[in-house]
Computed example of a mutant assay.
Amino acid sequence: MSNLAQQTCEPCSGNATPMTEKEADDALKALPQWKITDRDGIMKLTRSYDFDDFVGALAFTQRVGDIAEEAGHHPMITTEYGKATVTWWSHEIGGLHQNDFILAARTDEVAE
């Protein structure tokens, strides 16, 4: 388990401040296969995973759903034949928080 994946997610209220672009870029160094995207003015953390078939992508989607439910923090997941794309961001604050990077690291672990 990576050091980042072992960290504890902190409760994130609507009063929390989203990461700045520099903070997010610095945090991204621990997750080289992820990228920061800007959708509708909101920074989000995104990665796609390839699978041999739909069944593999669907099983991965369920594993990500399990870690999301456990953390009480839910990503956008697009599941298609041979591919799943996961996007993390903190909805309440309209941007990225350390929790998103922790859960992205956990997502990488369930993909292995």
Rank of each mutant, 00 (worst) to 15 (best):
F54M: 13
F54W: 15
V55W: 12
G56D: 14
G56P: 14
G56K: 14
L58V: 11
L58F: 15
L58E: 13
L58S: 15
A59Q: 14
A59D: 12
A59H: 11
F60W: 11
F60D: 13
T61L: 04
T61I: 05
T61R: 05
T61G: 07
Q62S: 13
Q62D: 14
Q62L: 10
Q62P: 01
R63C: 09
R63S: 13
R63V: 02
R63I: 05
V64W: 08
V64S: 08
V64M: 08
V64N: 10
G65Q: 09
D66A: 15
D66F: 13
D66N: 10
I67G: 13
I67Y: 09
I67R: 08
I67Q: 10
A68V: 12
A68T: 09
A68L: 10
A68F: 09
E69Q: 14
E70Y: 10
E70D: 14
E70P: 04
E70H: 12
A71I: 06
G72P: 10
G72F: 11
G72E: 13
G72K: 10
H73S: 12
H73G: 11
H73Y: 11
H73V: 10
H73F: 13
H74G: 09
H74T: 07
H74V: 06
P75F: 08
P75D: 02
P75C: 08
M76Y: 01
I77Q: 10
T78D: 06
T78A: 09
T78N: 07
T78C: 01
T78E: 06
T79V: 12
T79K: 02
E80I: 05
E80N: 04
Y81R: 03
Y81W: 15
Y81M: 01
K83E: 07
K83D: 00
K83R: 14
K83V: 11
A84K: 06
T85G: 02
T85Y: 00
T85D: 04
T85M: 04
V86Q: 06
T87M: 03
T87Y: 02
T87N: 02
W88E: 03
W89D: 02
S90D: 00
S90W: 00
S90M: 02
S90N: 01
S90Y: 00
S90Q: 06
H91V: 02
H91N: 00
H91Y: 11
E92I: 10
E92W: 00
E92R: 07
E92F: 00
E92C: 05
E92Q: 03
I93D: 03
I93Q: 04
I93R: 01
G94K: 06
G94C: 01
G94D: 08
G95A: 06
L96D: 07
L96Y: 07
L96V: 09
H97G: 01
